[in-house]
Design a protein around this nucleic acid. Sequence first.
RNA 1: GGGGCGGUAGCUCAAUUGGUUAGAGUACCGGACUGUCGAUCCGGUGGUUGCGGGUUCGAGUCCCGUCCGCCUCGCCA
Length: 618
Amino acid sequence: MSTTAASPYRRTHTCGALRPADVGRSVLLCGWVNSYRDHGNLIFVDLRDRFGITQLVFDREDGAHEVQELADRLRNEDVISVSGKVRIRVGGPNPKLATGEVEVVVGALHILNKTVAPPFLPDDLSALPNEELRLTHRYLDLRRPRMQQILGLRHRVTKIARDYFDENGFLEIETPVLYKSTPEGAREFLVPSRLQPGEWYALPQSPQLFKQILMIAGCDRYLQICRCFRDEDPRADRQAEFSQIDLEMSFVQREDVMAMMEGFARRLWKEALGIEVPPIRRMSYREALETYGIDRPDLRYGLPIADISEIARKADFKVFQDALIKGADRPRFSSKRGVVKALRVPGGAEKLTRKITDGYTEWAKTFGAGGVAVVKLTPAGFETGIAKFIEPLRAELTAALSLQPGDTALFVADVYSVATKTMGELRQKVARDMGLVPEWGKAWEFLWVIDFPMFEKNKDTGKWVASHHPFTAPRHDQQAAFVAAPESDEDVIESMVSAGYDLVLNGSEIAGGSVRIHDPAVQSKVFSLLGLTPQQAQEKFSFLLDALKFGAPPHGGIAFGLDRLIMHLAGTENIRDVIAFPKTQTGADLMTHAPGPVTSAQLRDLHVASTWTPPAKK
RNA sequence: GGGGCGGUAGCUCAAUUGGUUAGAGUACCGGACUGUCGAUCCGGUGGUUGCGGGUUCGAGUCCCGUCCGCCUCGCCA
């Protein structure tokens, strides 16, 4: 490509810029051939870049012969530059395009990069190719306007975050990616040290301790848009490598952090979608679990869950009795205590067919429940399913559940933890089956969930684990009681409520945080309850315990899951849609082929030997 | 680690109960065409049905194994 005085790449406009006001101008555009319509002596080319599409016209009558010959060979996704004159479209406007009133009559054409036939065309009209192919040719996939829009949205969100928190006195500070292993919590990615044989770094699950240290360092308010790593199996909304909008504030209680975040959410929705977020309501963890069976309730529909254990106790029905006998001596919300949970489905008698409700039982087993009992209310009484067992209790149940003729009631009987979880999942499934979930953009149900328990018992080991993380403080009004609480008294420990908070949107957790412990005595007690000896605590977290002794301000913070946030704002169900270069279910990057092998010399440098031997072939 | 769904032309899909030479649209190649805009019209190339084994007179279709992708349970302080 010869470049004379004028570079053939020096654009005067983008492909989304030209308007009738530009008519008569000589312009130079660069971009990709989005489509071409070849009429022989008249050729139309839609030229595309990130900013839009502009129609080019090659006309043999008033164009040079060589240009026409060149244009005749143009194919989708060729990269070209053209110069020519803007004019009003001769064939009438195209209302689908922002530039649809004008066209560029091309005088000169440079083919900057001729493409081979691409495996798929990056348009939003045709059916998406399978995801494997999209990920393999990510550079093609990202050319699609929809993907460009999401990339742009993500950029705007992080910009708004930086602006908002800057205006509120936050300092953006980077923290290490090569960190130290803290094996509590998620499985970690490890990095061997070359300079210290046998020693390892870990990639951070979050910058949690660094941001606390920054508060102790007097930074007052910290922000970071940071990458976090958790080596766990992915889900539709979860990747091993993900991003957080992470922040921490000094001299605050939970109200201050929540207010700051609420302001951010309000600003985001306003600027990104033009939507006003009303004051965000709050709900205790206990209420969320009791009424919705989950700690992140989706409030876009009703379907509250009821505990009907006391009524069910009177039923001559073995499934109920067997469940209720379990842990009967345990306190009310003990995870081991048997309960019967019920869900009223208004109008379910007609919509929830036998086939659907039969499916619920199979599906409930994946959550460890025995099944789902079903009954329909007709004017004549209960019908189908377990009707004969509970008909004597019809009056009580109808009152307790506000049942109307035409409703279906679903029951799960099991120990509290299983029944609650199963019912919570069932509620969401029923909402989908009943068509109660609004389509994207129609409802934004924000919710703060607060008053989480400090600790939960691990069901396998029987040990206490921190519900949030070990640096979460007890709720403001419980600090003294916590320090005084005898470690051996399970009921007291289980009743301790933390100063944590989760921000939930439409049933998905988009942010979570807490006020942190800033008192070394409290921190030591937490470590002790978690089963760490003072020596172990010292080994793992000496830097934090030390720092807490050198003048630690009260502080708290929160982290927004950036990827999930973008999913909500973009209206996609798939986290890979909001990450430029995502990984597959098996942690592979199909474009770069990571992970891949390394040489034995590399391993030797790192003082590492692989124990992996490929399975023998035949 | 468990469960489910999928893999057929470059791409998106079809192929009856296991039965002829595996089809269509699109892309690609060639041709026609001066106002299209997902241009149109005519013609053409293109297939190890993911891979390996098995059952069968006969396998895209059934069985076993395996690879890849997706969803999910466990897991995700």
